[in-house]
Design a protein around this nucleic acid. Structure first.
Lengths: 129, 129
DNA sequence: CTGTATCCTATGAGATACTG
DNA sequence: CAGTATCTCATAGGATACAG
């Protein structure tokens, strides 16, 4: 529902602003980060993203979907299964998210996760974050 | 004033979350981006960051200063002069902000600014953003 | 020139309960 | 399992005016 561009005046659009509107907010970055390894189900995400309420998770996923950063695939089964994964556009954000995460880890005095492993997508890391 | 860590429970801190808290918000990314070229004065920033109110600019600058991402240097002159610049920690965020900006430009259908120039810090780019 | 001081409002986001 | 539906609240952020 959020307008990507809501600068009211003839205000020049800034790329940094634009990008932050698409990945800003409290949870979007984390969702993208947690989808770095490939497909994940709703419940998996809910468990990974500690502290998120189902309402917020759904909302964030819908926004990311509308922005074409993730795809949503519904399987008509019982019990239902819904899978999310990054689009190509979304995947282009990964280096940035990972860089940010690395910076954050460093600032927090935590060890880097990737320093020695150039291949990221194949890693399955369960540090609960 | 903002607590860097305000997760109430024994909630595990996430590096991505942490980072977003430090550079999130509507203007922080832009401020960092605009300081990429070195020292800037308050008025310069105000003119660069179209649409920002003095209150918000001051607030953002103070938060970034507290977070040790920028420094503030006051010259006791008349008229007063105050200069801001990135700290080393802040500068470490530049690759990431620039990556984000490039992504945003691409998404917006704008040409890349940096594709052919590995040296960024020396560039003086006046695209008003 | 470099900010403060007020006032005000939209909305991001949490808590809780319920559903196909 | 994968979500909706309400209700509520704090606060990020804007407008405007003033100040050293």
């Amino acid at each position: 529902m959020k307008k990507v561009q809501k600068n009211n005046e003839a205000d020049t659009v800034c790329a940094v602003d634009y990008a932050f509107q698409r990945i800003g907010g409290k949870h979007k970055g984390r969702v993208i980060y947690h989808l770095r390894g490939g497909v994940k189900r709703y419940g998996e995400l809910r468990r990974s993203l500690t502290g998120i309420t189902p309402k917020m998770l759904t909302q964030v996923l819908r926004e990311l979907e509308q922005d074409e950063l993730i795809t949503r695939h519904v399987y008509l089964e019982v019990p239902p299964r819904v899978e999310y994964q990054l689009t190509d556009t979304g995947r282009e954000l990964l280096p940035f998210i990972i860089l940010l995460s690395e910076w954050g880890r460093k600032q927090m005095g935590m060890p880097s996760l990737y320093a020695c492993q150039p291949e990221l997508s194949s890693l399955v890391i369960e540090t609960r974050e």
